[in-house]
Simulated assay, not measured.
Amino acid sequence: MTDASPLHHDPLYTDAALVAFYDAENEGGADVAFCTELARGVGSVLDLGCGTGAFLVGLEAPRRAGVDPAAAMLDIARARPGGAAVQWVEADARLLDLGQRFDLVVMTGHAFQVFLTEDDRHAALATIARHLAPGGRFVFDSRNPACREWEEWQPHNSRRGVAHPRHGEVEAWNGAVHDPATGIVTYETVYRLPDGRELTATSRIAFPPRDELARLIAGAGLVVERWLGDWNGGPLADDAPEFIPIGRLA
C-alpha cells in the first residue's frame, strides 16, 4: 500500500481556490440520481470519497457519514444546509474503520480510480466490506479502459466555460497522458481566470480492468449481484463506458 492517498497531494481537491470549481464541474448527474434511489428507505448510508457532500445532504437516511481525505472539500460539505446532520470524517478510505456498519456504502464520481495500485484497491474494497451491514448493499464506479476516455481529455476538445461563484465565467481545459505499462493516466486541469491568471492541478488515476475488479471484490468478501455499464442502468458490455458493481457481503 502506498503511504498516502493521492488526493492528499492533489490541489484539485486540497486547494480551496480549485475546490471552488468542484460543484460547478460535478453538479448532480445520473450517478447521484441512481444512488439516491438506492438509498430510498434505508436507515444508514456511508459515502466514501464524499467530496463536497451534495449527495449525502439530500438524503433522508437517519444516519449518514461522509468520508474524504481532503479537508477543503469537507469544509464545503459541513457548511451546506443540512450538513450538520451528517457525520463528516477526514480520512483515507483505505485505512478507515468507523466501528459502524451501514445499509448502503457508495463510492461514486470515479473516486475508486484514485487508488493507483492493486494493493490500494484491495484495501479500499476491504473498507467497504468492513462497513457494510448484513443485508446491505454497496456500489461504486470505475471507467472502462477499453473506451480510452483519456483521449478526450486534451486541450483541443476539452475547452469549456465554468461558472465560478466569485470570478464569473472561467475558461477551463484538460490534458492527459496514459501509461500503458501501469494503466495510470496523468491529467492536468487548467482554469484561466478573467484576469489571465491560471490555476492548475495535476492528478493521477488508474483504469483497472474488469477481471481485476471482480477478483478483488471477491477477495474482499463481497459478492456482485449485478454489473451495470452506465448509471442509466445500461448493461455491461465490452464498449460500456463504466464498470458499476452492485452487491453485498458474501
Rank of each mutant, 00 (worst) to 15 (best):
E188K: 03
L228M: 13
A163S: 12
T2F: 06
V224Y: 11
R215N: 05
A54F: 01
L46N: 02
G51E: 02
A93I: 04
W88M: 02
G183V: 11
F140W: 15
R215W: 11
A91H: 01
V139D: 07
P11Y: 06
V177H: 13
G66T: 03
G233P: 07
G136K: 12
L46D: 05
N174A: 11
L38D: 03
P245S: 02
T36N: 00
G82T: 11
A84P: 01
D3H: 07
D230K: 04
E25I: 07
D15C: 03
D211A: 12
A126D: 12
A30D: 15
Y13L: 12
N26D: 06
V162D: 01
T189Y: 05
A72W: 00
H9D: 14
H8T: 10
Q113W: 05
N144L: 11
A133E: 04
D47R: 12
F115N: 13
R192Q: 15
D238R: 13
E152H: 00
R204G: 04
G175I: 08
G136P: 13
Y187S: 04
T14N: 06
D120G: 11
R80T: 13
E171P: 01
A163V: 11
E149P: 00
D119Q: 15
P209T: 10
W88N: 01
R130M: 13
Q100M: 13
A77K: 07
A54S: 10
T2C: 06
L132D: 14
T2R: 00
A72D: 00
V32K: 14
H122Q: 15
R192M: 10
R137N: 12
W173H: 15
A146G: 11
P180R: 10
L132V: 04
A123W: 10
R159K: 01
P134L: 14
R248P: 07
P81K: 00
H8V: 04
W231P: 01
R143F: 02
N144C: 10
A146N: 14
T52D: 00
R166M: 05
L193D: 03
N144V: 09
V42I: 06
R40S: 15
V86Q: 00
R210A: 12
V86C: 09
V224N: 12
V45W: 14
R226G: 04
P6M: 06
L48R: 09
S44G: 03
V224F: 10
S142A: 15
G29E: 06
E60T: 04
H122V: 09
P241W: 11
G41R: 09
D238H: 13
Y187M: 02
G28K: 14
I217A: 07
G99V: 08
S158G: 08
A250V: 14
V177P: 03
V223L: 13
P180D: 12
A24W: 08
E25N: 05
G99E: 00
P208Q: 11
Q113S: 12
A201D: 09
M73Q: 14
G183N: 06
S158Y: 01
D239W: 03
M107H: 07
R64A: 10
V42P: 02
G66S: 10
L222Y: 10
H9M: 05
G196K: 09
A65Y: 06
N157L: 01
C50N: 02
D141H: 14
G29T: 06
D195K: 04
P81Y: 08
P209H: 14
T200A: 03
H164N: 12
G219N: 02
I246W: 04
A93L: 15
V32S: 11
L216Q: 15
V57W: 07
D141Y: 11
I184F: 07
